[in-house]
Structures are given as structure tokens and as C-alpha cells.
Design a protein around this nucleic acid. Structure first.
Lengths: 223, 223
DNA sequence: CCGTGCTTGTTCACTATTTCACAACGTGTG
DNA sequence: CACACGTTGTGAAATAGTGAACAAGCACGG
């Protein structure tokens, strides 16, 4: 499936950067840029050119020496490397505000994902239709996952119900979980979990700002 | 403001983990857990206990040897370290689907943030009221930022308009930008930017899954 | 068909981060 | 008051990731 990645260990940071390259490359492709050098791509992504070449080298040789990288080809290659050169079928659990927003969001398919089922344990929500999907009871999850070939579960419940949602997903043999709830969840070894919480980024901002200002104050010991 | 951080450089990864600790500690606090050891906290956060102790040591000595950490006190200490022991005033630019969701989201204040202004350049949206805030024209941003003491800007425009939104924010002397748009933005040196894109996490998931399955296949060279 | 110019892929030294291991030190008990 | 216990804070070792430098190799021009 994924082209082997040369059986070397690949840093997590590399994967995050690949996602960034993809974003920038998509923009370039829309502007019909055909070829780009690691140097110019690096400038756009705000990283070191060597870094880009090394990141890509984990997966193969995608460039042409003396020329650079063909943009559409590189996009395809990165997608293959990340495993998103196909559509992944996704279930969402927790049809609250956030859940509904995601269900209505049009951008999934373009990025290789398709939400094909929605679950919520609130009996008043079960049976409702959101963005063309009927909200279903989590107790029936296992059979739906099997029938619909679902591989990824997105948790958008309140924090206190995240673990229960995760248990439903695990029970239904889902191996990949994206957790938007503001809570850590416990899962067995063989399940992959990623956490999405934009407050983490907020904190990173306020922290960098504080540090930055403190250093400024040091350099300018005014008043 | 922030307690000095002992003037040592602090890894970015540490900041991300502090945000995680905070999340778990909040949950513990709600369960009225008073004291926790680095070992048990580490288990809940899925990191190494030494890691936690070292992360905290960057900012001070918060624990009691032989006992552990007082949960409420540690929460407070981490908040101070991150610079979120006060309310940050935030502006949002781009009142689309995502923007509206964020404006309506109730959880900001609890985490130390307050959205006090919303901007959109669509003349049909200007003047509308969303979650009690009047949508305003970005051209008037500078004065609003000054009058409302805004320090952080959140970009929720479509990707192609992210740079323009960023320019407005920079022009209005905002130093911290949280960018939800799927595009990189160019900013001067002294501006802090953080990117939020849950597809990055999606890709991390699919990638880990592919690698994991490949390794499985290796160990079990079946058929 | 060879040489020049340019950019990749890759090595290596360096820097940053994580983990280990243990000394330091409160707490509670006899 | 002294001792045993338990957990922190921290220096040192191991591991991981980054950036500079350069050899390799394609494209184009003469």
C-alpha cells in the first residue's frame, strides 16, 4: 500500500511537515506552477531546504537534479507516502455543534476522506438527518462499520463522554481514532489515536508571546 | 508576567505537553483528586514520568518530594507558566461556517480567552450579529483592536483569503495569529503564528496505520 | 559529444530532546 | 529525635532530529 518507506524509522515531525508541503504544493498547483526547487518550497513552508530533501528522501527520489520537483507528481507521491491516495471511510460519533459542523463540511473528500456514518447516544437525535446522514445509535456501530467498510472514527462528544465513545469504536473494530474531545482516552496498543485541540495552539501562542516579550524587556531595560 | 522560565530555552514539545497535563489535571480536579505523582500523571498522559518532572522543572519546583503534586496548585502553576492565568482578548476574522461555530462556542472563557470582535469583508455580512457580536469591516480593524485591547487574531477565512486577513491583523498591530485557514501565511519576524488543521492529524493517522500494517505483514508473511 | 550550471540526494557533525539513574529531601512512624 | 519510605529534581548518557556541505547527476548549449 504505502511504498515501504524504506523500512527506516520516520520522525513524527517529518509527517507533520509532509502535510504542510502538501498544502503549499496544492496552492502552487492551483496557480499552475509546474516545477519547484526545494529552496523555494522551503521558503514557502518556512523550513530548511535540506529538511525538505531529507523528508522526501525517506520515501523515494521524487526530484530531478538540476531542475527541482514536478509539482503534480510530488503531490501524488506525498499522498501515496501518507496513505491518502485513496478515499478513507469515516464514522463520526457525537452529533453536537462541532459534530454537525464537520458533517456539513465539504472539504473532506478533496483530502481523501468521506464521512459515511454518524452516531449519537441521545435518543432525541437518533433518526435525525444531518448533511444527508441519518444519526444512528452507537450500539449498532459494529454492524454499520462492517457493512460500510469504515476505517476511521472521529470523536466529537463532550470530554466526559469521550472514553465511552472510544470504547464503542474499539468494540466495532475501528483502528484509527481522531479525538476532538478535550480528554485523553485509553486504548489498547494496536489502536492509533490523534488528538485535535486548538487550545494547544492557543497556549503555544500565548507562551511564545510571553517569552518574546520577556526577552524584549531584557534587551531594553527601560524605565 | 510569566515567571521567567529561568531564561533557559524551552522545547516546543514541552509546551504541547503542558497543555496535555492541564487537560488531564482539570479532569482530575473535577474528580476532586488532590494530589498526584508524576508516575500516575504520566500514565494518564501517556508519557514518561521523568519527562513530566523535567517539563515542570523548566518553570519551577511545584511538587513535594515523597508526596507528589497538589492538583489545583499545579493547574494554577502551569497556567501561569503558559501565560493563561488571565483573559486574552481575541478577534476573529472570517465569519463563515467555521467562524460562526467558534463565535458560538462557549468554552473559550474557561480556558482564558474571550472573543470580543468579529470581522468579515463580505458587505452582506457586515452588520449581522453572531453570538452577540456585530460583524465589522476589516478596514476598521485597527481602531477596534486599540479600543478593545485585542491581542490575538483568529483567521477563519477560506485559504485564498488567509494572507489578506493576516495583513489586516498585522496592520492593526496584532502580534499573535491563530490560523485555521488551509494556507501558510507570510508574516514579519515579530509576529507569532500557529496553524490549526485537523487534516494534519488525519494524515498522521493514516500514515501510522499504513506503517503499522506494513510491519504486521512483515512479521506474518502469510499466504 | 563534452563541459557548464544548477539542484538533488546523502553524509556527517552538531544540536536538541528524551530517558535513566540517583542524590536530595519532605513525611510520617516508632 | 532518628529512621524508613516514597517521590521529586537533576546531572549525565543515550537517542533523535537538524543543518551545512558536497558528491552525484540531469539538462542545456556549443
Amino acid at each position: 500500500m504505502c511504498p515501504a518507506s524504506k523500512s527506516k524509522h520516520i520522525p513524527r515531525a517529518t509527517i507533520q511537515r509532509l502535510a504542510i508541503y502538501l498544502q503549499v504544493l496544492d496552492a502552487l498547483d492551483n496557480e499552475n506552477v509546474e516545477v519547484i526547487s526545494s529552496e523555494r518550497l522551503a521558503a514557502a513552508c518556512d523550513v530548511n531546504p535540506s529538511q525538505i530533501r531529507k523528508d522526501l528522501a525517506y520515501f523515494g527520489e521524487f526530484g530531478v537534479r538540476g531542475v527541482g520537483y514536478n509539482v503534480p507528481k510530488l503531490i501524488q507521491s506525498i499522498k501515496e507516502s501518507l496513505g491518502t491516495d485513496r478515499i478513507w471511510r469515516v464514522a463520526l460519533i457525537g452529533v453536537g455543534n462541532l459534530g454537525r459542523s464537520l458533517l456539513r463540511y465539504q472539504g473532506f473528500l478533496k483530502r481523501g476522506f468521506q464521512i459515511v456514518a454518524a452516531f449519537d447516544c441521545d435518543p432525541f437525535k437518533i433518526g435525525d438527518t444531518v448533511a444527508g446522514l441519518e444519526v444512528m445509535c452507537p450500539r449498532r456501530m459494529k454492524e454499520h462499520v462492517r457493512d460500510l467498510h469504515i476505517e476511521i472514527g472521529i470523536i466529537t462528544t463532550p470530554a466526559e463522554r469521550a472514553q465511552r465513545a472510544a470504547n464503542h469504536l474499539i468494540e466495532a473494530d475501528i483502528r484509527c481514532i481522531l479525538n476532538f474531545a478535550a480528554a485523553r482516552i485509553q486504548v489498547p496498543e494496536h489502536i492509533y489515536v490523534e488528538y485535535v485541540d486548538f487550545f494547544h495552539h492557543m497556549y503555544a501562542l500565548t507562551f511564545k508571546y510571553c517569552i518574546g516579550e520577556a526577552q524584549r524587556a531584557e534587551k531594553t531595560p527601560s524605565s
